[in-house]
Amino acid sequence: MKLSENHADLLKETLNLGVGAAADALSEIAGGEEIILTVPQLQLMSTAQLARQVCDVSGEEICSVTETFRGPFSGKAMMLYSQRESLELVRLMLGDMIPVEQIREMEGEALCEVGNIVLNACLASLADMIGSELQTDIPELKVGQIEQVLSLEDEEHSILYLRMDFTMARHNLQGHIGFVFDLDSVTALIACLENYLKSIFEI
């Protein structure tokens, strides 16, 4: 499968809007700090290649919150960061609400909630744009080496991966948000987006 330039652009722009909503939510969690987003990258690759790519970036144990979504198209939305950064993020969110020694205890729980808010913001704006509904599962937190975190069952499985990096400058915090789509779903997603575009131009 090959994506045309127009389709790739359409996908990037759509998910860009979604990640914009996600960044907005993240900024609110961090008390209004600006979140800097990179231009989205879109790649067709195997799950094994995805693992290598994510590994190259972090090089250490990573922490991920994943949410599976289903609707006219399905896939997985993920938020990934290193372990050190995840604790910092929790500290930012809970601030002075609980004593420092309890923060570590709450870390996993709190990260799931951050992931839930951020990924849902992204998926909700995407669903609203195409005028349909996406069902989202409960967020799942995984910590460990990349292979375990991504639970790669079939390394040759082809996927479309869209990633955007985010940075919170003041706290030197960075991570990335990624979307994994099965190829079947990509066709459905593109059809939805084309309908959306058509509806705009027909008015």
Binding site: N116, N120, L123, A124, A127, S132, T136
Partner: peptide
């Protein structure tokens, strides 16, 4: 009170 702010919800 939810992060799932889809119009449908």
């Amino acid at each position: 009170v939810t992060a799932n702010f889809q119009a449908a919800v």
